[in-house]
């Protein structure tokens, strides 16, 4: 089988999903749907972040040296008190790298 056909198939499917609602500019959503869409960012991003912190290797990891979880908690605290995105990202990353260094988890 020619991989290019597979690639084109994947392109068609992926683009169709992403373009699905952009394709109908005159479609106006009913109130309940707009209300539901309002929760998309909070729900989707939480569903990415929390498993990312609790299971960085794909398995639940509640050990004290899970740098993802510890740094994640610090990041949440920074986000809550600073309400500033760049401060949160930098503070979180620095905490994460320090913890990884402390736990000997850096590939150096």
């Amino acid at each position: 089988m020619n991989p290019w056909w597979l690639i084109l198939g994947m392109l068609a499917i992926t683009f169709s999903i992403r373009y699905s609602l952009f394709a109908w500019p005159n479609l106006h959503f009913p109130t309940w749907l707009n209300q539901a869409l309002h929760y998309v960012p909070v729900a989707v991003l939480s569903a990415i972040v929390v498993p990312g912190l609790l299971m960085p290797e794909g398995e639940l990891d509640l050990a004290w040296d899970n740098a993802y979880l510890l740094a994640g908690l610090v990041t949440i605290a920074i986000a809550k008190f600073s309400r500033h995105l760049l401060t949160t990202i930098l503070g979180g990353l620095v905490t994460f790298l320090l913890l990884r260094g402390l736990f000997g988890q850096l590939p150096l």
Binding site: S46, Y68, I78, G92
Partner: peptide
């Protein structure tokens, strides 16, 4: 993860 946290 830190960026998404800062957004959420």
């Amino acid at each position: 993860l830190a960026t998404f946290t800062g957004i959420v």
